[in-house]
Design a protein around this nucleic acid. Structure first.
Length: 515
RNA sequence: GGGCCCGUAGUUCAGCUGGUCAGAACGCGCCGCUCAUAACGGCGUUGUCGCAGGUUCGAGUCCUGCCGGGCCUACCA
């Protein structure tokens, strides 16, 4: 084999023109859950996120803020870095396109494309939208604006072009041979039909502003932001030094997680750039859906972008993570409403899982002297289901089906609750203590397994729960599921709730007010 | 304009290649338990499966048209 079990996963690098919001949090949390899952499953993982900082829009925002583009980028980039802490994101690196290592990679890739004859200098005339970073044809304009509603200006400039038109057939062949390379399937179909409709050469440089990476050999041009940005996935693992172990270990990336709006860049342009430079394309790109907020589209005009820190302050880190991953199939659109979040939080987390752990641990505390009880063959059916969890989870996670993974875990939670009722250990405490111990052991062992597999999704709560079961940090990987069952007699700490119920704050000042 | 997808219980949705496919969860009602975060468990509840035709022994499940919603892409310059 020698093919080491390794996994390279990325989020997009986020454009610093916007502050972090729910949408950014979503992609990042999903990537984190996968990264954590793979690590626990024994993979060497590289999990990358970061910020995209060049381009005309950033330059303009900086100007209106009265600061330099670099200063502006520094500030916003910091907010994104803070978001990773807020949401307990376990990224291994955080790349910025303004870093020297990135610039080096962009320059190298550019030269490589040039050397291979994939770039030529051409002339472009057309309507350009700064907001969309895109050109439009005369005919596409509506009322003098882009189809997206953005302002456009007439631009006539010399541009470097990438010979994208040459790559259509090879892209199609690639996707034909690698049907898993784009997910979900519906998106793959869109991409394929887009490619089939014919690809035009792509303008990959801009003039007229300087906030970007200069084109090697022609500093009047800066590299098109999208080409610049996409290369981050390479620069973070040491490109252009393709001989270094980091690069040879991790490239091609296993998974680029992206929002559905930027799929084309990742599933058409990016693989074409890579193939043209003689590098293998990513193994898989997955496009997730959008959240609405209380039924409304997130938009600047509505001002309903939810900053991650607000969410975490209100609901808690784990609850937000859980909701985002559980509420809907990854890939679909969904609605983020207070009602739905509270329902998940109180129903699934507090009542089902949190209360299960609490009721079992309290009984052990009272009836077993606070020590792991003796097993005795009870609860075999329950334990069998808990054992069957990992293989199912692997399958779901391979397909980014977080909601199914969580559903499977919660099915065992439900079984455990039913088992508590059926076995009634509180009654056995008076009649058959040996059997009571055996029942409680099965439950505690089930909870241990649940706590281990739930780590990727709600890491903080899982950690506390594992602490309450006195599971050593070294015994929390998936390998430990079979290797390290609970040892009877182990002293357990005083149990504490792990998922508090969410109680609507009754605001006294609102008591008499109409709402 | 072309392409794709969706419309199933009050709500959110499962239902692959046609024959227990009329389901799950939440909500709601009744009952049980009392270990637990007023949590848990049991039973029950509602649907003309968007509309109209058609294929078939038999269709949410296939075909056609229509209505409604979404997405991708392009608009005879």
């Amino acid at each position: 084999m020698t093919a080491e079990r390794r996994f390279y996963i990325t989020t997009p690098i986020y454009y610093v023109n916007d502050m972090p919001h729910l949408g950014h949090a979503y992609t990042t949390v999903a990537a984190d859950a996968l990264a954590r899952f793979m690590r626990l499953d024994g993979y060497r993982v590289k999990f990358l996120t970061g910020t995209d900082e060049h381009g005309q829009k950033v330059a303009a925002s900086a100007r209106s803020a009265g600061i330099s583009p670099q200063e502006f980028a520094d500030r916003v980039s910091l907010s994104f870095r803070e978001m990773t802490g807020l949401l307990a994101i376990s990224n291994d690196d955080f790349i910025r396109t303004t870093e020297p290592r990135h610039r080096r990679a962009v320059e190298a890739l550019w030269r490589e494309l040039e050397r291979r004859g994939e770039i030529y200098l051409g002339r472009f005339a057309g309507w350009y939208s700064v907001r969309d970073e895109a050109f439009y044809g005369e005919d596409e304009l509506q009322d003098g604006k882009a189809p997206t509603g953005a302002e456009v200006e007439w631009v006539e400039e010399e541009n470097y072009f990438f010979r994208l038109s040459r790559w259509g057939e090879r892209l199609l062949a690639y996707y034909e041979a690698n049907p898993e390379a784009i997910g979900p399937k519906s998106r793959k179909n869109e991409v394929v039909s887009f490619i089939k409709s014919g690809l035009n050469d792509l303008s990959i440089s801009r003039t007229g502003f300087s906030w970007g990476i200069p084109v090697p050999g022609n500093p009047r041009h800066v590299v098109y932001v999208w080409l610049d940005a996409l290369i981050n996935y390479l620069s973070a693992i040491g490109y252009p030094d393709v001989e270094n172990p980091e690069f040879s270990t991790y490239w091609p990336a296993d998974l680029h997680l992206v929002g559905k709006d930027i799929l084309r860049f990742h599933a058409v342009y990016w693989p074409a750039f890579l193939m043209a430079a003689g590098l293998p394309p990513p193994r898989r790109v997955f496009a997730h859906g959008w959240w609405t907020v209380e039924g409304e589209k997130m938009s600047k005009s509505l001002g309903n972008f939810i900053p991650p820190e607000r969410l975490v302050a209100i609901y808690g880190r784990d609850a937000v993570r859980y909701f985002l991953l559980r509420e809907l199939p990854f890939g679909s659109d969904g609605d983020f409403s207070r009602r739905a979040v509270v329902a998940r939080l109180n129903g699934d987390l507090a009542n089902d899982f949190g209360n299960l752990a609490q009721r079992v641990l309290v009984m052990i505390g009272r009836n077993c002297g606070g020590r792991v009880p003796e097993p005795g063959g009870e609860g075999e059916a329950l334990l069998a289901n808990a054992r069957g969890l990992l293989p199912a989870l692997r399958e779901h996670m391979r397909e980014e089906a977080f909601h199914l993974a969580l559903e499977a875990i919660w099915r065992v939670v439900g079984e455990a609750n039913r088992y508590v009722d059926a076995a009634a250990p509180w009654a056995l405490a008076r009649t058959d203590r040996r059997r009571m111990e055996s029942v409680l052991y099965a439950l505690a062992e089930t909870i241990r397994r649940l706590a281990i597999v739930v780590q990727p999704f709600v890491p903080e709560a899982a950690e506390r729960l594992l602490g309450q079961l006195a599971v050593a940090p070294a015994a929390r990987s998936f390998a430990a599921l079979e290797e390290s069952p609970l040892i009877p007699g182990t002293a357990l700490p005083e149990p504490e709730g792990i998922f508090p119920r969410f109680v609507e704050k009754t605001l006294s000042c609102e008591a008499g007010g109409a709402r």
